[in-house]
Amino acid sequence: MTLSPLLALGSALACGVCAGLMALHDNRRLRLALLAVQYAAATALTSLSIPIAVAAVKLVGGLIACSILGITLTRLPDRPGPRPGGSIPSGRLFRVTAVLLVSVAGWGLSRETWMGTLSLIGPASLGSALLMTLGLLQLGISDTPFSVGLGILTTLAGFEIAYASVEPSLAVLALLAMVHIGIALIVSYLILVVGKAQKISKPLP
């Protein structure tokens, strides 16, 4: 099965929109839903390089990661606490500006031939570059386990689109899928451990 050019471009844009919205929004459930959509779009782009049946490993791994994070979120209060004050700017305007600037940078990067050797098909290159740059932005402006976890998973998803075009083996895809699941598990562990530690150190009145 091959993806139509329009669908491929749509998937690349979906990757960028999902990653951008994840960096902008605070609602954890919405961000998790965006992550799942992002995995579907990334799988579609990966299928430009490898058979869809093999690329589906990525989707399965991603959805398991989303499920793990989703189960963890059900054990947390609905509303996230206030953003921790610190050295990281967190204003909405700052984040919108940063997302726009980084998206433009990602688009520019996707027009280059990566490292002079990677021959990515146009939309795959765009989707990969957007995910990697916006994922790194998310990593840079976050300090909570959930947000940092989303940043890592987004960056990794972008990298895998590019890497699948050069290393299409099932073993590597399976290993990388394990990495996604592992990151989701560790992030969930950190969310729960930190929550428990905060409860112990600050008992509710």
């Binding site: 940092v148 990151i183 451990v193 930190v194």
Partner: peptide
């Protein structure tokens, strides 16, 4: 690294990233 007694969240997240 991260436990309830020693919640090494920042160190763990940085290591992972």
């Amino acid at each position: 690294l991260a436990t309830v007694e020693y919640p090494a969240q920042r160190g763990g997240l940085r290591l992972l990233s």
